[in-house]
Simulated scan of single mutants.
Amino acid sequence: MYAIGLGENKEEVLKAYEKLKEEGIEVELIENPKLLIDKLIDGEIGGAVRGSLPSSKVIPYLRENVGKFYRASILKNPFTKGIFLLSPVGIDDISEDKNERINDKIKIIEFASNFLKNHNLEPRVAVLSGGRLGDLGRNKEVDETIYEAEEIVKHFRGKIDIIHEGILIEEYLKEGYNIIVAIDGVTGNIIFRCLGLVCKIPGYGAVILSDKNINFIDTSRNANWERYYNAVKFLAGGEFE
């Protein structure tokens, strides 16, 4: 049994629910954010999808129960047709403090790499910054993102396949990098909305990256039915289609 949160955008959630029911997958619709998480934590359901419930009600309560975690959106790469992880995508996923933010991104890369390995995919990491490398010196804030990205790459150099070539997300995807590390949660959220909600690139929602095994997928309340459907199918089968 799985559960989907039912808030705003009910019509799209119900479409996913009906499609899953046709395929024999048992799904419960839950309108109370706390009940959704309680049932997940208590083991009453095998996995939960946020559905169209508000993030501000679900995510803080989930953190109260399981501790710190990060979110990584799973999206189809439009160039390679494989999948890639985009993280962070939550506005409160990583710290505003520089040193803590770097540590958060290091943990994201470690957790995301393990996630891909568990699905028989070799992690290839691309770290985003705010401009091309040749833009260094033009803008102080952009410079800081470049220095930060270089520090992260230095931490992993020789251990994993990791690259930083500035803001060029399109080149990273063309080259098949499957972990894209955004500058921060706001930037990641905007990238997801542009790719997933505007350009309609298929996806599975955002998985939880943590040292705990949490069968929860975060989804936008503005998503179409296919994202809710894909999220439950992934929880049920653990495979990408």
Rank of each mutant, 00 (worst) to 15 (best):
G134I: 11
I94M: 08
L173P: 00
S129Q: 02
K174S: 12
N120Q: 00
L128A: 08
G137P: 02
L173Y: 09
L133H: 08
S95H: 06
K107Y: 11
N99T: 08
L173W: 07
E110H: 03
N103A: 11
V89K: 10
E171I: 14
I91M: 12
I162R: 09
I94D: 06
Y172T: 03
E171R: 14
D161P: 08
T145Y: 04
P88H: 09
K159N: 02
F115K: 05
I102K: 07
I162H: 04
R132V: 04
K117S: 12
D143M: 08
E148F: 01
I94W: 06
S95N: 15
N99F: 14
E144Y: 10
K117N: 10
E165A: 08
N99S: 14
H155L: 09
F111H: 13
V125L: 10
Y172W: 10
K154V: 07
K98D: 13
R101C: 10
I109S: 03
E100V: 01
V127T: 03
E170R: 11
H164M: 02
K174Q: 15
R101T: 07
E165R: 10
L121F: 00
E96D: 13
D143Y: 02
K140P: 01
E110G: 03
I169G: 02
K140M: 02
P123N: 01
R157A: 05
I152A: 05
F111T: 04
H155W: 04
F115M: 05
K159E: 13
N103D: 12
V127R: 06
L173S: 04
N120L: 03
V153T: 04
I160E: 07
K174Y: 10
L133D: 11
E151N: 07
K159H: 06
